[in-house]
Each structure stands twice: as C-alpha cells, then as structure tokens.
Amino acid sequence: MKNIEVVAAVIKKQDKIFVTKRGYGEFLNMWEFPGGKIEKGETREQALKREIKEELELDINVDKFLTTIDYDYSNFHLTMHCFMCTVNGGKLHLNAHNEVKWITLEEKDKLNWVPADIKVLKEL
C-alpha cells in the first residue's frame, strides 16, 4: 500500500478553529484541516507554512505539535502530523478550497469531515 505523509494546521483564534472545505479530489466538499505533503528537504513546520501560503495565502506561526494520525484509506496509508497554529499575516484567498469557516468544537458534528480529520478532532 502506498504511504503518504502530510502536515495539517489546526489554526486557532480564541475558542474557534479554522476549517476548510476541499475544492478538489476524492474528498470534494468534505471538511478538513488545511495542509499538504512534505517536500524533500523540508521540515514538517516548513512544509506546513508553505502549504498554507500556497493554499490560503496566509502566513502562520507553527506554535506546537498536537498529534500524528495514522489512517488507512482503501488505496493508501496516510500519516498526518498536526500542529496548533495561529495566523500572523496575509490575506485569505481560496486556491484549493471552496469554503472556509471558523467553528467552535461544539459545531464540529454539523460538518461532513474527511475521515482522517475526525481522529484529529478527538485530540482537541
């Protein structure tokens, strides 16, 4: 089975977390924490800052490691390293998503999540 290693940002502001709705691929229109693949030579933190800049045009601080999630999809194994983050600049523009929102943890069950991201929610 193919292994894919990614990073994800749990961006927090007061009591809310930032979530994105996928605008492409197998999980189109499902909610997730933004992020992406680690490129050769990058640290996890560098990859996360780059991915958020590419996808959302936001600058972030990677504040602390949260968890690593392993999840088996039907055609690949995902390892997702998740970090707590804060926005420190940029202007939001959706390059890979079709919607974003700030939610409280109480609102999480109202959204249709990408399966691996459900495990991240349990860590919050």
Results as ranks from 00 to 15, higher is better:
E107A: 09
E32L: 09
E123K: 13
E26S: 04
A8H: 07
A9F: 07
A8V: 05
K110S: 14
L105V: 08
N3I: 11
I11V: 15
K37P: 09
K16F: 04
V62L: 04
V87C: 06
G35K: 04
K91A: 12
Y24V: 12
I11G: 03
I38E: 03
K101Q: 11
G35M: 06
L28A: 01
H81E: 13
A116Q: 07
N98V: 10
K37Q: 12
K12G: 04
V6K: 14
K108T: 15
V62D: 03
G90D: 05
L48T: 04
N61A: 10
A96T: 13
K37C: 11
N61K: 11
A8C: 10
V7Y: 09
Y73L: 06
E26T: 11
K16T: 12
L94M: 08
K21A: 00
T79A: 10
G90M: 05
H93K: 15
K108I: 12
F65E: 04
K91H: 13
E5Y: 11
K53C: 06
V87N: 02
N95F: 02
V120C: 00
G89L: 07
C85Y: 03
N61Q: 04
E51A: 03
K13T: 10
H77V: 09
I69R: 05
N75F: 09
A116S: 15
Y73N: 01
L28I: 14
V7W: 09
D72M: 05
G35V: 10
F33V: 07
L94A: 07
E26K: 13
C82E: 06
D117H: 15
E123H: 02
N29Y: 11
W113F: 05
T68H: 03
P34F: 09
I103Q: 03
L111Q: 01
N75H: 09
A9Q: 04
L78G: 01
K122L: 10
L56G: 12
E123G: 00
I4C: 02
Y73C: 01
M30P: 01
F18P: 02
K122S: 11
Y71K: 02
P115D: 09
N29F: 08
D72E: 12
I38D: 06
V100Q: 08
K119H: 14
G35S: 08
V19L: 07
K49A: 06
I4W: 01
D70F: 04
M1F: 03
E39W: 06
K64G: 05
C82H: 01
T67L: 02
E32Q: 11
T43S: 15
S74T: 13
R22N: 15
Q46D: 12
